Amino acid sequence: MATEAIRAVEGEGNERRFIISFSSEEPYNRWFGPEILDHKAGAVDLERLNSIGVLLFNHDTDKVMGKVIRAWLENSRGQAEVEFDTDADAETIFQKVKSGTLKGVSVRYAVSIWEEVMAGEKSSDGRFSGPCSIATSWTPLEVSIVSVPADATVGVGRDMGEDEATPAPSNSGRLTLRAAQRQLQINKNYL
């Protein structure tokens, strides 16, 4: 995990604020293969985080811990300044982050455009080698402090929901509903 994944904001009045790294271009192995969140200019829509962004605990929408003050991209990473609320639930998580017990950060996101790169091929901009699926247009929906990040190597986790737990297509050749939906999106992107 990167040592800069969560760091306190200095200065009076900032006691409950932290700078977090919530995303990177580090490939993450999904059931369908490596996934990469592109961070080049124009790939990430931060409008939602900057206007109504929240800080959750373990992606639970009923466990709002605070708010996103601002979000930006830096060194091919998503960064955010977050502030913890003062209610009892938020205080518990705030103290665990402050003490260093909780260090994991994750992001929930929606992808608008995928680029599929076949084995032995390069992405259209030449930055990534296949096989991989690259989210070339995506929107962070929320950031979370998490107890078990999916990708602990960079201090950034990616939400491991039901879709990721779904096994790859069976030997019968039938695709899962999620795989079929992804393929339809890929087909639309190539039209």
Results as ranks from 00 to 15, higher is better:
residue 92 T to P: 09
residue 89 D to Y: 15
residue 184 L to V: 14
residue 163 D to F: 11
residue 151 D to K: 09
residue 164 E to C: 11
residue 168 A to M: 08
residue 155 G to A: 07
residue 23 S to D: 06
residue 6 I to V: 06
residue 117 V to G: 08
residue 46 L to I: 01
residue 37 L to V: 06
residue 161 G to D: 04
residue 72 W to Q: 00
residue 73 L to A: 09
residue 8 A to V: 05
residue 141 L to I: 13
residue 69 I to L: 04
residue 143 V to D: 07
residue 165 A to M: 15
residue 114 W to M: 08
residue 134 I to P: 04
residue 19 I to G: 10
residue 37 L to A: 07
residue 113 I to Q: 13
residue 96 K to I: 10
residue 146 V to K: 01
residue 171 N to D: 15
residue 91 E to C: 06
residue 140 P to Y: 00
residue 27 P to K: 00
residue 3 T to R: 15
residue 58 N to F: 03
residue 139 T to Q: 01
residue 3 T to F: 14
residue 96 K to F: 07
residue 144 S to P: 00
residue 134 I to C: 08
residue 10 E to R: 09
residue 71 A to M: 01
residue 118 M to E: 15
residue 9 V to N: 05
residue 88 A to D: 14
residue 49 L to V: 01
residue 104 G to Y: 00
residue 39 H to K: 06
residue 155 G to E: 06
residue 62 D to Y: 10
residue 84 F to I: 10
residue 107 V to A: 06
residue 39 H to F: 03
residue 81 E to R: 04
residue 48 R to D: 00
residue 161 G to P: 02
residue 95 Q to W: 07
residue 148 V to T: 10
residue 117 V to Y: 07
residue 115 E to Q: 11
residue 57 F to V: 08
residue 52 I to D: 15
residue 133 S to E: 14
residue 112 S to G: 11
residue 40 K to C: 10
residue 55 L to W: 04
residue 147 S to P: 14
residue 178 R to L: 12
residue 12 E to M: 05
residue 115 E to S: 02
residue 66 G to C: 09
residue 171 N to T: 11
residue 181 Q to K: 14
residue 183 Q to E: 11
residue 33 G to V: 04
residue 119 A to V: 05
residue 20 I to T: 04
residue 134 I to E: 00
residue 22 F to L: 07
residue 56 L to F: 00
residue 115 E to P: 04
residue 187 N to F: 14
residue 32 F to S: 07
residue 98 K to E: 10
residue 43 A to S: 10
residue 156 V to N: 05
residue 95 Q to A: 13
residue 113 I to D: 13
residue 155 G to W: 04
residue 122 K to L: 14
residue 191 L to I: 09
residue 149 P to Y: 12
residue 186 I to L: 14
residue 110 A to I: 11
residue 41 A to Y: 08
residue 147 S to N: 15
residue 48 R to K: 11
residue 5 A to F: 09
residue 62 D to S: 15
residue 133 S to D: 14
residue 141 L to M: 15
residue 84 F to G: 00
residue 78 G to A: 03
residue 166 T to F: 02
residue 65 M to T: 02
residue 175 L to H: 03
residue 26 E to L: 06
residue 45 D to L: 02
residue 165 A to H: 15
residue 145 I to T: 03
residue 103 K to H: 11
residue 191 L to Y: 13
residue 46 L to C: 01
residue 47 E to C: 09
residue 29 N to D: 12
residue 97 V to Q: 05
